[in-house]
Computed example of a mutant assay.
Amino acid sequence: MGSFSIWHWLIVLVIVALIFGTKKLRNIGEDLGGAVKGFKKGMNEAKDESQPSVTQQVQDSSTIDVQAKEKSDA
Rank of each mutant, 00 (worst) to 15 (best):
Gly42Met: 05
Phe39Ala: 09
Trp7Asp: 13
Gly38Met: 10
Asn27Gly: 12
Val12Trp: 01
Gly42Val: 03
Val12Gln: 01
Lys37Tyr: 02
Ile19Trp: 02
Val16Asn: 00
Ser50Met: 11
Asp48Thr: 14
Gly21Gln: 03
Ile11Cys: 03
Asp60Arg: 07
Gly34Gln: 08
Gln51Ser: 07
Leu25Tyr: 01
Gly42Asn: 12
Ala68Asp: 05
Ser50Ile: 12
Gly38Leu: 08
Gly2Phe: 01
Gly38Phe: 03
Lys71Phe: 07
Val66Phe: 10
Val66Met: 05
Asn27Trp: 10
Val12Phe: 02
Lys24Asp: 00
Ser3Pro: 08
Thr55Cys: 04
Gly2Pro: 00
Gly21Pro: 00
Ile6Arg: 15
Asn27Val: 06
Val66Lys: 14
Ile11Lys: 05
Ile11Pro: 00
Leu32Gly: 03
Gln56Val: 08
Gly33Ala: 10
Lys24Cys: 00
Asp31Ser: 09
Ala35Leu: 14
Gly38Ser: 12
Lys69Ile: 15
Lys71Thr: 10
Gly42Ser: 07
Asp60Cys: 04
Lys23Met: 11
Val36Ala: 05
Asp60Asn: 05
Phe20Tyr: 06
Gln59Thr: 07
Thr63Pro: 01
Gly2Asn: 09
Asn27Glu: 15
Ile11Glu: 02
Gly29Ser: 09
Ile6Cys: 06
Gly2Ala: 12
Lys37Phe: 01
Lys41Val: 11
His8Gly: 08
Gly29Ile: 01
Gly21Tyr: 02
Gly34His: 09
Lys71Gln: 03
Asp31Tyr: 05
Lys40Gln: 06
Leu18Asp: 00
Asp31Trp: 04
Val66His: 06
Arg26Pro: 00
Asp31Met: 15
Ala68Glu: 13
Ala74Thr: 13
Gly38Trp: 03
Ser61Phe: 08
Gly34Cys: 12
Lys47Ile: 08
Trp7Asn: 09
Ala17Lys: 01
Val58Arg: 15
Lys40Val: 15
Ser72Asn: 04
Leu10Arg: 13
Phe4Ile: 11
Ala74Val: 09
Glu70Ile: 10
Ile6Tyr: 08
Asp65Tyr: 14
Lys40Thr: 13
Ser5Ile: 04
Ala68Phe: 06
Ile6Glu: 11
Thr22Phe: 04
Asp73Ile: 07
Gly29Lys: 02
Ser61Trp: 03
